[in-house]
Design a protein around this nucleic acid. Structure first.
Lengths: 182, 182
DNA sequence: CTGTAATTTCAGTAAGGACAGAATATACAG
DNA sequence: CTGTATATTCTGTCCTTACTGAAATTACAG
């Protein structure tokens, strides 16, 4: 693998762009894209060549991806070099990334909100309105967070049936709405 | 409003930090946080003073928030200045932001993936493995995207009952898994 | 029309992150 | 122990984005 099929290139470049919009480093995302579509584990040097980025940059990107657990090192018989491969299951990738993002982006907010609400309770009613706002935000995030926890526990294998769920969500909430009133 | 209660400050600063992790400009997020907890609509100048950022910066941040539809201009009788207020309903805010992000971050990827898969089909079997990978990613994103569309259509009022859903998700998928096998 | 308040646009600057290449470290064959 | 292949860390540079303050624009009162 020294050159890249045009389609592969298109996908990798796009994935990199999307990465930046998600707050993920472009190169990191490109490396992931490359590994994701590679049938065989790839060496860091190959990645460096194919993507035309510095070897050191690849090294750091791989470390990042490994720390997330969506890329693994594997060894090939008779080759001293590290080879890398991506988790291939899309649901698994989604699950890992989503959990990591929740841990970094939602959980700290929940903590801070709890602290704020707590302190506002103690300090009396001087900020009634603010407290109400923070409480509603806290409640919302708590519920969503719990829901999310349940969803990511769904095993990848069960996801094959997820298409069948379409329509059910609305039905479920339709019923709820009926009970609760508009 | 010239000074900020300590708790309000804490919330605003934290919201700003979280914003940066979400690819949202820190100041934009802070302005939103301030408006969110303000009982009354606030002028741009007040925002500038309270947050200690340049007036022009506030102007741009407000424009961004307005373009998303989570902040509105309102006018106060006998005051020429624009006043700004945030949408207060947390589900509504979430819905708006999530839809906007999907539009910018998921939909383009779906387009590109479709194009890639399409072209790989035309160009024969030379890249069978890559095609499989891209197809599985496309299928996954399509399903999730559809599911998401349904969820965001749930009216805010119906959300009051969302807590009751906890546990149902797993049940639903448990049944699916049972049919599909682990 | 004129003057003033309010807002937006513009241009330069500062700060942060991404990146390349060099330097260093590690592992292993002989 | 030495030399070579491989991988990581470090340092400086470039580029992007955020931000400020000034200039320009708009809206309106008198």
């Amino acid at each position: 693998m020294q050159t890249l099929a045009p389609i592969a290139q298109k996908f990798i470049l796009h994935w990199g762009e999307m990465g930046t919009r998600w707050g993920i480093n472009r190169t990191v995302a490109q490396v992931h894209a490359l590994l994701f579509i590679s049938p065989k584990p790839v060496t860091a040097e190959d990645i460096s060549n194919v993507l035309s980025v510095a070897r050191s940059n690849v090294s750091n990107s791989l470390r990042e991806l490994q720390s997330w657990g969506i890329v693994r090192v594997v060894h090939v018989l008779g080759d001293r070099r590290d080879h890398f491969e991506s988790v291939k299951d899309v649901w698994e990738i989604f699950r890992i990334v989503a959990e990591e993002r929740k841990r970094r982006e939602i959980d700290p907010t929940l903590r801070v909100l709890r602290e704020c609400v707590e302190e506002l309770h103690r300090s009396g009613q001087s900020d009634k309105y603010t407290r109400e706002r923070l409480e509603s935000m806290l409640e919302f995030l708590t519920v969503m967070s719990g829901l999310f926890e349940e969803v990511v526990r769904i095993p990848a294998s069960a996801l094959k049936g997820v298409g069948k769920l379409r329509g059910k969500v609305v039905t479920l909430f339709g019923a709820t709405r009926h009970r609760e009133g508009t």
